[in-house]
Design a protein around this nucleic acid. Sequence first.
RNA 1: GCCGGUGUGUCGGAAUUGGCAGACGAGGCAGACUCAAAAUCUGUUGCGGGCAACCGCGUGCGGGUUCAAGUCCCGCCACCGGCACCA
Length: 838
Amino acid sequence: MLCTAHGRKGSGKTLAANSKTEPYNPAEIEAKWRDAWEKNPVNVNDGKRPKYYCLDMFPYPSGSGLHVGHWRGYVISDVWSRYQMMHGNHYVIHPMGWDAFGLPAENYAIQHGVHPAITTRENVDNIRKQIRQIGAIYDWDMEVNTTDPAYFKWTQWIFVQLFKKGLAYQKEMPVNWCPSCKTGLANEEVVDGKCERCHSEVTKKNLKQWMLKITAYADRLLEGLNGLDWPEKVKKMQTDWIGKSYGAEVDFEIDWSDVGEPADGRIRMLRDRYIRVYTTRPDTLYGATFMVLAPEHALVTQLATAEQKEAVDAYVRQAMNKSNVDRLQDKEKTGVFTGSYAINPLNGERIPIWIADYVLADYGTGAIMCVPAHDERDFAFAKKFGLKIVQVIAKDGEEIPDMQEAYTEASGIMINSGEWNGRESGELKLAAPDEIEKKGFGEKKVNYKLRDWVFSRQRYWGEPIPIVHCDDCGAVPVPEEELPLTLPEVEKYEPTGTGESPLAAIDEWVNTTCPHCKRKAKRETNTMPQWAGSSWYFLRYVDVHNDKELVSKEKADAYLPVDMYIGGVEHAVLHLLYARFWTKFLHDIGVVSFDEPFKKLFNQGMITGKNGVKMSKSLGNVVSPDDLIRDYGCDSLRMYELFVGPPELDSEWDDRGIDGVYRFLSRFWRLVHENKDRDVEETTELLKVRHQMIHTISTRLAQFNLNTVISGFMEYNNRLLEMSAEGGVDKETLRVFVRLIAPVAPHIAEELWQRLGETDSVFHSSWPEADASLMQENTVEIAVQVSGRVRATITIDTDCAKEDAVAKAKEALGDKLSGTIVKEIYVPGKIVNLVVKP
RNA sequence: GCCGGUGUGUCGGAAUUGGCAGACGAGGCAGACUCAAAAUCUGUUGCGGGCAACCGCGUGCGGGUUCAAGUCCCGCCACCGGCACCA
């Protein structure tokens, strides 16, 4: 719009005459300001300004360094931080640290015998150097490293508090086991039945594990989402992961008469009288025509009759051998009849009890009532095995003669349902749990998909779990004054693969005394998962050197929680859920006074290689920022990272485009130099452009439309270059432009600010304010349409009345207008449309 | 299967409440400067037709609402991401 309205014709000569300015030399000015800012940081806490906490998801310091994709997130957060600093006059907390425990360093240690602490230190040093090149305002005095004993002392301390509150407990159970990483995994770390890290197929292994009772917080984790300014997508993923459902548990009496007495004449043990099921559709209870138990269900062997015993045993054995992946992917229903029956508590009918692996042992009660008429899975099972189908909800009160598919909606009229007949099923669905409870054969029940967090890992490079096992006292926490409990030096980092950590082999470390009774005891040898350190690091940044507390109450209240959290979407149900859980716990024990850590979350899109392929070392499509900085400078790369596309979407990287922003910066440099020493009058035209520019850029920045912020700069730069050639640009407009561009291209902005005669940093200046009265256009060019087709354009006053606009439009159309006008439409500032009939 | 996102020139992408589709940039083409090249600057660049003014067609596909649809409604398709036998 800016350029089409004002042709650039003839401006070339004038520009050439004035263009003998010093060329833009990013390498020189960027080095200059990097040093200057290091000596005199621009973002200091004077205790007077309001705080703004802008946080990046801290990186794992991998050996391969950063690529342009990592950069994008850090650039976005820095632009936002600097904008907050200038715009709201905030003291911005913008820290960086290292999530440094984890497998790559440990695997490297196994292969090369180098201690993970050494590899980690080297990688951290390297990546810190790379991150410094971004020219961001990170406060390196706040740096944290999860592997630093002074840090993980508090990770262990939190574990001890969880233990004391009964939220950390041990349990022996089949856990997800990665045979390649040789460690147990949390549910959240199993993706499609595969290990989140190495993609090996996950198996089950019976291990005694430390568990964290995240389920105790299920409801609060769910409800807390409502108040968060997070992407809906992430909230939805967490909601689904928590998986809350409402329904009822119902007891079905077992009819033991089909199961004979044991052949060997032994007397039966006391038998269970009931099978308990969980259902979200208690309204369909009259339609329950069979039951299915998970193969792992405790009653399976007892329920098998003599005739069915062999088939049942075979089925159970086969189900146990099936891998998780197979069991999930095989949608074809399989199952076997136990030979036994149970009684439907409502209608007293005998219904067969089956076993099938589509019923999961660890959800609900591991047993279900089956209503084939109203559940797809039960329908498929009933069809396959010829079981009875009874319809209990009818859409229009009419029974379907031969059902071909399940009717799964909870709306319709109850039929075949005794005293429930005629009721509306949606209403009954809500009322049934209470009615069943009153009848005495069940109770109202809420269920969650969320499972407790498997918290131990059988690996070396993690925080040791601070527990001592004593024969007499049981599990006893290491006394808080003895924390941190550091890792022993080992010779072999290799995981044993038996489910024991390599720490178990270090006798002098393992053998200790019980803190409680002082007798001989053994240390816990499992370590914590990677997620432990990252579940609370954002709290530590504001009080890194505190050796008395995790964070002081004073600092927590002053600087927390996080106002803006920026990172990839891949942690939606891992880190972000765990961090919320720990924050709520720390709130409950009085460490912090808020219970949601991250008020606003922004997920930046991924930068990919050509054709949307993820950048990876093995594919050889990784683009390193280092060369680009050398050739174009940091400011150009920062701008290009934003210019490639909307920040929330994935973008394919194409090196060629960076030339465009480099050219822009050179021209911007020229614009300022052409005019800084001229004495140009502040015309209304210049004022108008200046204030429109402030408005446009500020709006786009505030809305996080960062790619269009860059294109906006380019447009205004082009416009101002024309004006520079025509009569010049006044100094205040240049000063405004420099301030607007400062968050995005800090080095060039600071340099030009100085060259405009300023002595203080541009970041200590205030954000320009747009004056709406000065940005008004007097005239506007609008399109004239005839029956919706553009036939002419006219220039009219902005406040032009309808009659005048239409008259002018008719004039402009001349003989292009024929037929009779049936309707005249005028939208001020937009369009005139004359609808004609031929 | 369910949920979410995306689909616009050669490419990346613009387009407040429906109001001149293609801003800005990349690439291409032409020109200026140059012995020449690079850099820089200028012009041009959706498709089709016409010497031209101009006309027609164009935002994944098919319908619809409207004076007017990339934008709203209905029905599809493709790709990406998440969840996936949770009773």
